[in-house]
Computed example of a mutant assay.
Amino acid sequence: MPKPKKASPKLKAKKARSAKVLQQVAALPVRPTPDGDLEVLLVTSRETRRWIVPKGWPMKGRKPHRAAAIEACEEAGVIGPISKTPVGFYTYAKRLPDGGALPCRVAVYCLTVTKQLATWPEKGQRDVQWVSSEAAAVLVDEPELADLIREQARVAVAAQLRAQDEPDPL
């Protein structure tokens, strides 16, 4: 019986690359509006200039939610409490220098913005814009991220309504 042919190194590398799913962390910077809605801070990616949320690679020695908070400060200049567990996940195709792409799964942590800095490390490299949650959902390219933004807006509005329905303790 003839031996099966071994895959060429190029084919092996291509298969390994196509099977690998990268992991990233992101912050979803939000703030309530006076009328009870939710605004989202979007940033542009440095290369394609598309609207995204601040995100990056996990950081050695840091919990994922802390890494997401650091990315929000570096990319968008915002600070505030961040959820310790992800509010959701989305996937996108991470573009590679050779023109290829790898699937990337992003864990998203909600960051309630309490302070916006006048200067931050990536100011000038990205645009930042506060927009309504619905506008944010329309502006981002990733459908899963758009759904996640809409869901967070629904959660925020529901919490606001519950707070209004609570009887005055006095």
Rank of each mutant, 00 (worst) to 15 (best):
T114D: 09
T44A: 05
L102I: 06
W130C: 04
T48S: 15
L28R: 04
P32A: 12
V40K: 07
V108L: 02
V138K: 10
K5A: 13
P86V: 01
P81Q: 09
L148N: 05
T91F: 09
P143V: 02
C73H: 10
V43R: 07
A137F: 00
V30K: 03
A7Y: 13
V138N: 07
S83E: 11
A76Y: 05
W120R: 06
R49D: 13
M1K: 11
T48P: 08
K14V: 09
V40T: 03
V21S: 02
T33N: 04
L11C: 09
L170S: 14
T85G: 11
G80A: 05
R49C: 07
E151R: 14
W51L: 01
A163S: 13
L41S: 03
G56Y: 06
D168Y: 10
D141F: 13
G56P: 07
P58D: 00
Q152L: 05
P64R: 00
K55Q: 15
K20M: 11
P121C: 08
K94L: 12
R49W: 08
D35K: 12
V87I: 11
P29I: 04
G56W: 07
L145T: 00
A93V: 07
T114W: 01
A93F: 15
T112F: 10
C73I: 10
A13I: 02
A118H: 13
T48K: 14
V87Q: 08
V140N: 04
A107D: 07
D35Y: 05
T48I: 11
I79A: 09
L11M: 13
R126P: 09
A68C: 06
Q125M: 14
R66G: 10
R49M: 11
R105F: 00
E144S: 10
A72H: 06
K10F: 12
I79L: 15
S132C: 03
K123L: 10
A118F: 11
V108E: 00
H65M: 02
K60E: 14
Y109F: 15
V155G: 10
R66W: 11
Y90D: 03
K6H: 10
D35M: 06
A69N: 06
P2K: 07
P29V: 04
Q152F: 04
R162K: 13
M1S: 14
G77K: 04
A135K: 07
M1W: 15
P4Y: 01
A16D: 12
R66I: 14
A7R: 14
K94E: 13
V25I: 00
P58G: 02
C73V: 12
P4R: 06
E166W: 10
C110D: 10
P97A: 07
P29A: 00
P54S: 08
F89V: 07
A26P: 00
E39G: 03
K63W: 08
